[in-house]
């Protein structure tokens, strides 16, 4: 039950993009059409789950026993960068179809702050291994949901009559604000 609450809270109540502001750059950059938004979301979810598991292991088997917590940021970001590269190479060799769909998004994911943010948060909240992975999955799906919703809105915005200075990013931010307002309605859920 606790795991389900954790999942739901990462997915909706504390949505990574709209409430916690992690991963806002891809949220604005890759939300121009629904297909690429979905691709980016799936690729990010995949990396989030894998990196949640790997950084948990690093924290508990390397940084903890050696008592070097000050190396956390450096160690995590290196591991994440290497991991993303590894996933890219692995997909390239094993499933060209999936690589084609996710490939272009993978290099961007290293600098997506939700990956490092999630790793640091799950250390701060002292999650166990399963909780960390579930947290990663919920966060990833929440990111995908926000991205796809935003892309849907932006596809419609193209046909809207918008004052010239507000065209493009400014109106997208205002829509994101309204979306975020809608998401704050989930706060009563837990």
């Amino acid at each position: 039950m606790n795991l389900f609450l954790l999942f739901l809270s990462a997915l909706l109540v504390n949505n990574f993009v709209l409430v916690r502001f992690l991963g806002t750059c891809p949220f604005m950059g890759v939300s121009k059409d629904v297909d690429s938004a979905f691709g980016m979301g799936v690729a990010t979810t995949f990396v989030l789950v894998v990196s949640a598991a790997v950084t948990w292991l690093i924290e508990h088997f390397i940084l903890g026993p050696l008592s070097i917590p000050f190396m956390q940021t450096t160690a995590f970001i290196l591991v994440i960068a290497a991991l993303v590269q590894l996933v890219e190479m692995f997909l390239h060799k094993t499933s060209p179809g999936l690589y084609k769909a996710m490939g272009i998004f993978l290099p961007l994911i290293t600098t997506n702050c939700c990956i490092l943010g999630l790793a640091i948060m799950s250390v701060q909240n002292a999650y166990n291994f399963i909780e960390a992975v579930v947290f990663g999955l919920g966060a990833g799906l929440g990111f995908t949901l926000a991205l796809v919703l935003m892309a849907g809105i932006r596809e419609e915005l193209r046909f809207a009559d918008i004052p010239e200075p507000m065209l493009g990013a400014p109106i997208a931010f205002i829509c994101a604000g309204l979306l975020s307002l809608a998401f704050s309605g989930f706060a009563g859920l837990i």
């Binding site: 502001f21 400014p170 931010f173 205002i174 309204l178 975020s180």
Partner: peptide, 13 residues
């Protein structure tokens, strides 16, 4: 959070 998005959008405009 919504205020952050809206403020940034209007300032950019």
């Amino acid at each position: 959070p919504p205020g952050a998005f809206i403020t940034l959008g209007i300032l950019m405009g």
